[in-house]
Design a protein around this nucleic acid. Structure first.
Lengths: 220, 220
DNA sequence: CTATAATGTGACCTGCTGGTCATATGACCT
DNA sequence: AGGTCATATGACCAGCAGGTCACATTATAG
């Protein structure tokens, strides 16, 4: 985590630095990001950088907490439209709200998810803790769906978690990659066409999950 | 592509070199792979390396064609158990045969898919051609499934392609990551437990796809 | 055996990396 | 004023990167 020196900095200067870092990570990933570039683009000296942070990874970890905090704030303000939602409806709402958030902070999300999904796949241990947090939420959701009778109780929970995670990541990557090509991401994400695409994707997952297990046994 | 000098080399020496390259790419990816390491571990000199290849990327591209060739050979020898298979049965068979292949050449597959799925996601243009080849096969399959009446004709073909690609990649990554932890990958892949896991994953996809569109419309 | 062409070699080049440190600056206190 | 302490600086370091090239070795042909 950043040293106190950094946290004492005026907000504007701090933002300058993390913006430079975000741009660097978004373009080059963690491994290939250059501290020299970050230093140059944020208008501070090399020495200051190492007075603020331990190293590159330290900056990234800070970015991760910033993003997490922003996301929390964002979700606090948003509430599911209906109070008594089906678990899948809730999941769909969650994914869509997530996409809205992503298109509000596209550079930052790109930087983080590039590292987490790209490099993190193979050096996962470092970020295992972060991944666990996300996955736990999926576990709760699927268990709730079973309790409510929306999903066959014999369903393989771990499998369902993997499916939810995979789709969550796939949609996020897809939206980010396609969205970066648009002039107005937010508008594009909110467009009926994009929303329908997301709906359909999730519906395939939902329909498969609802029925899977009992049908699966019959099938073989 | 490698220069003639390389292709003239005795097979043993060639294999030595590509093995070293595979190990390097598997461990560090394309961007961070070191030509110096490859040279050291393959017992050739720096000068020779650049007499054989243009650069790092050239080696990787060659690796890609080698893998493709090996995979073709492998699939030539394998034939679907039944001649009149459902498209989804065929897809399932294909995925499983693919996993068998992967566990026969785990290092090479790891090296290639690490670059293609990790780095390739963001520098996609370079490998777009390769990806297109794979995707085209999925397109044919889904069109065939529609013709046969196995899938609703109103299904979004592009969407189905994306789903098939995502699952294909997700399963491949999962098997590779988990499999590398086992002492005998091949045995583990063939085990009833692993096979059932794959079956279930694909079944969720299949069941979702079969019904999606018509149900989807009703649902909203 | 000699001449020519092909192949192999590793010292060497430049450029960039992450990281250090002696020194300079300037805000704040007495 | 002088003193102190957090902050800021950029020249500098060792290490490694990709890539080159003059030279050494070996194979082929006449």
């Amino acid at each position: 985590m950043p040293k106190q020196t950094f946290l004492n900095l005026p907000e504007e200067k701090r933002n300058h630095i993390i913006n430079a870092a975000v741009d660097e990570f978004a373009q080059y990933g963690l491994e290939n990001a250059s501290t020299n570039h970050i230093v140059e683009n944020s208008g501070i000296s090399k020495g200051s950088f190492y007075q603020y942070f331990e190293d590159k990874q330290d900056v990234f970890m800070y970015l991760l907490t910033v993003l997490e905090r922003e996301k929390m704030e964002y979700f606090k303000g948003k509430h599911p439209p209906s109070t008594n939602m089906d678990t899948f409806e809730y999941f769909r709402w969650m994914i869509k709200a997530g996409m809205e958030f992503n298109s509000a902070y596209p550079r930052m999300v790109q930087a983080v998810s590039r590292v987490l999904l790209g490099e993190g796949l193979y050096y996962a241990k470092t970020f295992a803790e972060h991944r666990l947090k996300t996955i736990k939420a999926f576990e709760m959701m699927i268990n709730q769906a079973i309790e409510r009778g929306e999903v066959d109780p014999s369903v393989d929970v771990e499998l369902a978690m993997m499916i939810m995670e995979t789709w969550s990541n796939a949609i996020s990557t897809y939206i980010l990659n396609e969205g970066m090509k648009q002039k107005d991401i937010m508008k594009w994400v909110r467009s009926a066409k994009t929303q329908e695409k997301i709906d359909k994707l999730l519906y395939v997952m939902e329909y498969g999950l609802r029925k899977t297990e009992s049908e699966f046994v019959k099938h073989f």
